[in-house]
Structure formats: structure tokens, C-alpha cells
């Protein structure tokens, strides 16, 4: 990873501390600054309220020319988070073909935050969950809350 990229990540970290989206805490390790650990409280107004989620943000060596990779380490029932051991979230600006170098981690964090409040079933990674979200919101809410109790306490 180039010195410029490291410098930018440092800079972005500084920016994130000053402007962290609500309910998020960033664990930053200077020895391994390309892997950020995010502790995220489920937003109050969402079905994930009360849950504590652990996320990982990995910066590729080509950063900022390639997007950071966001993955949920805590299991979450969400149309935009893959329901596997990766827990990857890949939509919008995180998509490789959508990513632009001027995008910033802080906007990635905001995207994650807003997606917890309002999932985007039209750009889902889990079609069945997205379908349930659209067709049977009650059942979706129930399962999501159940998973919060089970996995995110």
C-alpha cells in the first residue's frame, strides 16, 4: 500500500472521529490501519434497536481507487447483508464499478447507518429477505428482532 493511501486512511480516520455517525465507535489500530473495526449500535428507530453489531472495514491496497470492503461480523437479518459467514455488504457506492476515489469512509459509515434504518430491498444481496421485507414486513421485522436478540446482544 502506497504511502499516499496510508496517509489518506489516517486522514479519513481523523475525519471519522470528528464526524462519527450516531451509535458508532471505531477501533483503529495504527499497526494495521487497513482493517477498521466498527462497533455499531442498532439505530433506535430501526428493528435493530438494542443490538450491538461488529463490522469490519478493510481497505484494499489500491485504496482509494478501489472501494473498502464492509462486512458484518455479527449476524444480522438484513436484505443488503449477505447471510453467510462473510456478512458482506456490497451496494451503492461500495460496488466496485460505482466507487469513486472522492468517496470517503465517513460516507460509507453513513450509508451503513441509513441502511439499518431503511434497508434497500431493490438492491439486495439476499433476495428472499428482500422479498419478505417488501411483501411481509411484519414477518421481516419479527425475524430481524429475533436475530438481534439471538446474535447481537
Amino acid at each position: 500500500m502506497s504511502a499516499g493511501a496510508k496517509k489518506r486512511i489516517m486522514r479519513e480516520y481523523g475525519e471519522c472521529i470528528n464526524d462519527t455517525p450516531p451509535g458508532m465507535k471505531i477501533n483503529f489500530d495504527e499497526q494495521n490501519m487497513t482493517e477498521w473495526e466498527i462497533l455499531l449500535d442498532g439505530p433506535e428507530q430501526s428493528v435493530y434497536s438494542g443490538g450491538h453489531f461488529k463490522l469490519k472495514i478493510s481497505f484494499p491496497t489500491e485504496y482509494p481507487f478501489k472501494p473498502p470492503v464492509v462486512s458484518f461480523k455479527t449476524k444480522i437479518y438484513h436484505p443488503n447483508v449477505s447471510n453467510d459467514d462473510k456478512g458482506s455488504m456490497c451496494l451503492g457506492m461500495l460496488r466496485p464499478e460505482e466507487w469513486k476515489p472522492p468517496n470517503k469512509v465517513v460516507s460509507v459509515l453513513r450509508l451503513v447507518h441509513s441502511l439499518l434504518i431503511e434497508p434497500n430491498p431493490d438492491d439486495a444481496i439476499e433476495p428472499s429477505i428482500a422479498n419478505e421485507f417488501k411483501e411481509n414486513r411484519k414477518e421481516f421485522d419479527k425475524t430481524a428482532k429475533d436475530w438481534v436478540k439471538r446474535y447481537a446482544k
Partner: peptide, 25 residues
Amino acid sequence: SDRQGRPSSADEGNSGGSLSERLRR
């Protein structure tokens, strides 16, 4: 407006993406 370090709203619109939007793109 970009010089203020803020992506323009048009740019942000591009980063979203319904399937049809992505298909078109």
C-alpha cells in the same frame, strides 16, 4: 461546489442503484 470537498448531489445519485438503473448503466 465540489471544491468545498462535498460531492455534488448528482454524484450521489449515481452511486445508488436499482437493478434497472444498474442495467441501464
